[in-house]
């Protein structure tokens, strides 16, 4: 598989000579996100500062509705912060762009395009030739193990397969950051585990920065270098937990004592936050 990555780099001159550690540096500075105006406005994310290093795998963990997706969307460029700034590789984020690949919770493949054309979409709108587009698309399709399905339509694939295509489609633009918004939330437990391993191997191959939003504690610890725990609304990061588990990660680690200890720390904080959120909603 590594040979494919190397051959692909020939298509991308700006990447061929640069170390992958140079890309995907995210700096969030005093970001505050407020929705609405005046009396009806609500604060979604409290003033937050945060730095994510190139190549880091960071999970944002929190109860539902805590603003973790909103924070992710501010990196993606879908949400403009009310104050503060988001910068990726020294460039201020103002709108969505191909340097930040996005994988959504809902299936977001274009139903009228074949799997291959879905993956080729990014390179195509960037103005690459048809030959380049299909060569890139084929390579990424093989990476996620779905070459057999190149000419199928999304509706013919299972949910897990569709999300793999979604990841391949985001990676086909050679982004410096991969943003994932609860991408495995709709999958069954078995598929989810396989997807997590699959994602980790892609990540180690690409050395790409990943910001991954989830409410699943096991998922966060299994995947991440760092778990950022978010409080309930308004969202703010209440803990920045380093995950010292060795890589490559193995699902068997999930029963180890180190994993358990980390899980306990996360669960306690999440539980407190969930309770607070629950009380707020029921007041």
């Amino acid at each position: 598989m590594n040979t494919q990555v190397v051959s692909l780099k020939e298509h991308i001159p700006h990447r061929a000579h640069a170390s992958k550690k140079d890309f995907g540096h995210i700096v969030i500075e005093d970001v505050e996100i407020v929705f609405g105006k005046g009396a009806t406005s609500s604060q979604a994310v409290k003033k937050t500062s945060l730095e994510i290093k190139p190549g880091e795998f960071v999970c944002i963990l929190g109860p539902s509705g805590c603003g973790k997706s909103t924070l992710l969307n501010s990196i993606a460029g879908y949400v403009t912060p009310s104050s503060g700034s988001v910068r990726v590789d020294e460039k201020a984020v103002s709108e969505p762009g191909p340097d930040r690949g996005m994988v959504f919770q809902q299936y977001s493949l274009f139903p009228w395009k074949t799997i291959l054309d879905n993956i080729a979409f990014g390179p195509k709108v960037a103005g690459r030739t048809n030959v380049e587009c299909s060569s890139i698309a084929n390579t990424f399709l093989e990476m996620v193990g779905l070459s057999k399905f190149a000419h199928k339509y999304p509706a013919e694939l299972s949910g897990g397969m569709q999300q793999r295509v979604g990841i391949a489609r985001a990676l086909a633009n050679y982004p410096s950051v991969l943003l994932m918004d609860e991408p495995f939330g709709a999958l069954d437990a078995q598929t989810r585990l396989m997807m997590q391993e699959n994602l980790l191997s892609l990540w180690s191959e690409f050395g790409i920065t990943v910001v991954f939003v989830t409410h699943d504690v096991d998922e966060a610890i299994f995947l991440a270098d760092r778990v950022l725990i978010m409080s309930a609304s308004p969202g703010s990061i209440i803990d920045d937990l380093h995950i010292p588990l060795p890589r490559p990660r193995d699902p068997a680690m999930a029963t180890g004592s180190e994993f358990m200890a980390l899980k306990k720390v996360c669960l306690e904080q999440i539980r407190a936050e969930s309770l607070r959120a629950f009380e707020q909603q029921n007041m």
Partner: peptide, 13 residues
């Protein structure tokens, strides 16, 4: 679906 428009935007369209 809005998510398809957002996906296309993030892919650089």
């Amino acid at each position: 679906p809005e998510v398809l428009v957002r996906a296309a935007k993030s892919l650089g369209a």
